[in-house]
Design a protein around this nucleic acid. Structure first.
Lengths: 357, 357
DNA sequence: TTGAAAGCGCTAACAG
DNA sequence: CTGTTAGCGCTTTCAA
């Protein structure tokens, strides 16, 4: 079944008639090898299937790898706080392999703080970077810089154009929108309804993210042929929060809205409070992510579904790929798409209890 | 932040005034240590926080651990085939740590084959066992034997009484039944319906499993106060397959069944085929697990929901716990409950694509 | 440009 | 009973 013995550098050395030192130099391209020796070794390497022993490798080496994280300040937004939990899990996972993980935070609505955070990050000379690509265009120069210095980086949460990270970790946002639509379709009893997508104080920087979800949402309903469902959209801008309530209520009354799709994780709570206050309880609401407040709302029946983006695991996997690259030189898949998890009142506890996930 | 240096056996030796050999003997309780030396070392151990370096440990040791798996023959049932995929993932995960994983199969309906498989398993002298506890009572003596030999074992899939494995990995089956009920409740348009749980050729051995699901299913509907839903149950026994069709159709007609809950992963296909043949399309069906056939049915709209039990990951986690025990002496949690994953036509692809999960 | 050799932290065999 | 020592496979000097 299994190969009898693992092949060691020593074996390769013997086979190619050189010393272990030379083999090591060839494998790691550390130069200082004659053309003749290099060819002999590479010939052998081609013929056999050598996998270095990770244990011996990190035990024998003093090199410490540093992976830097660049994310919005978790104190500002519970969503990013969730993602940070993945960092802690990663720390214990990789500590044995000399991997140091350092988060760098910036303020969501302050480009200046992004500038300075990314500067500090670069100063720390990381071997790799995991980043949530906020401030899209403005941050392009940051990714350029990483490219130039040959520092590998992985993106998560939102896929952005014109950048080619080593990998992207996240969900299919279009499909996420479709799923949200299908859940609302399930939850609203009859046809002949209006449903609406509610954009509540979304950062402009994320427009791609929410546009994709909206596209999926609308496509789902327009491809539905059994009933007439109208899709509208309500937009609540950044400092519009005072008029949020009146605007929302007005739209609901005018369009007879029966279903609300809220693509921001923190929008559900604001909305549910308004609906409750105005005694509008026959509404089907789909929100995002297992924030504590959202879990409450699900249990109390104020909202009907959540779609879980699993930000903590996104970070965990992002670091996994980076570590694998640094340690084994193993290429990550270009895209790792996460499952679109449907959370209801009846399965939410099972998600919260499952520690790992 | 981090401790400056990791503490090594060498340090402990110096602190307690003995040699590394003695420290090693104390730590591993290999005897051959004088009371005086033991006390000195243990005093130091108590004061500092020593964590052995796993890399050095497995590198320096020739010990190979063997974990045996005892599961139904995957060729007989696609469900168990899924679970076996977790084995392959575990193999690559743990190979670097000298962990050998060996499956042992038995036939689902043949107690004799269970006997001989478990016998062979014991003969292979495993260091730990992961098992799906089929043949409940009949297998008790097997677990007794493991207890006596002090071989740790973990159960997955179904929790059984009167046995205390190191850990149980699986789902809350009662809640799973409730979830199934809630999905059917969503999927059937109006109230005043009959819904039914369909027991199709379930192994008697699993009765606990299905009883729990049924209990949750019934409880959900009886706690519902907004509509009158009647719950019936249709039982198709092992060799009753010829009369399956007539029996099912008869029940549907008689009770005006609008929703079917099918707690076996392989039951959905049989049922869906019959319904399609008899042109009964306005039925809400909830089945289990991402068998290829079930995925097809979900996509074609013949069934409405699947609840994913994630058997492959159950195996993966079970082995994870066992390996952690053998390697680090790290205790596993008594129960690891998995999230109850809701699969619909709109998110099924996202689950299939996500390799890891 | 090369080979030899000294670690990395732990285990296990071997003399005392 | 106890200390010493030779590996485990790889990295990283250091001479040659």
């Amino acid at each position: 079944m299994e190969k009898n013995k693992m092949i060691r550098i020593k074996d390769i050395a013997k086979l190619s008639g050189v010393s272990v030192g030379t083999v090591d130099r060839v494998i790691h391209k550390r130069g200082k090898v004659s053309e003749a020796a290099r060819q002999k070794v590479e010939k052998v390497l081609k013929e056999i299937d050598y996998t270095p022993n990770l244990l011996a490798k990190t035990l024998g080496s003093s090199k410490v790898y540093k992976i830097a994280l660049l994310v919005p300040n978790p104190k500002q937004d519970p969503y990013w706080n969730l993602s940070l939990q993945g960092l802690e899990a990663s720390k214990v996972e990789w500590r044995p392999y000399h991997m140091v993980l350092e988060p760098h935070f910036f303020e969501l609505h302050d480009f200046g703080s992004f500038k300075s955070a990314s500067k500090k990050l670069m100063d720390s000379k990381p071997d790799a970077v995991l980043s949530a690509p906020i401030f899209l265009n403005e941050a392009l120069e940051f990714f350029k810089e990483l490219d130039e210095l040959n520092i590998p980086y992985v993106h998560f949460n939102t896929m952005i154009p014109d950048v080619s990270p080593l990998a992207f970790i996240g969900q299919d946002l279009y499909q996420s929108g479709r799923l949200g639509a299908s859940l609302i379709n399930l939850g609203t009893d009859c046809n002949n309804n209006t449903v609406s997508i509610l954009h509540v104080s979304e950062s402009i920087q994320f427009s791609v993210h929410f546009k994709e979800k909206e596209r999926g949402f609308r496509d789902y309903f327009s491809s539905l042929n059994n009933g007439i469902v109208t899709v509208s959209s309500v937009i609540i801008e950044g400092d519009d929060m005072k008029s949020f309530e009146s605007k929302l209520i007005e739209a609901i009354k005018k369009d007879k809205i029966k279903g609300l799709f809220i693509p921001t994780s923190s929008g559900a709570k604001l909305t549910a409070e308004i609906l409750r206050k105005n005694k509008l309880s026959d509404m089907c609401i789909v929100g995002y992510d297992l924030l504590e407040e959202n879990v409450e709302l699900l249990k109390s029946g104020d909202i009907n579904f959540l779609i879980n983006q699993n930000p903590n695991r996104q970070v965990f996997r992002g670091i996994h790929h980076l570590a694998n690259l640094l340690l084994f030189n193993k290429q990550a898949p270009e895209k790792e798409l996460f499952p679109l998890e449907v959370i209801t009142r009846e399965n939410v506890d099972s998600y919260i209890k499952s520690t790992i996930h």
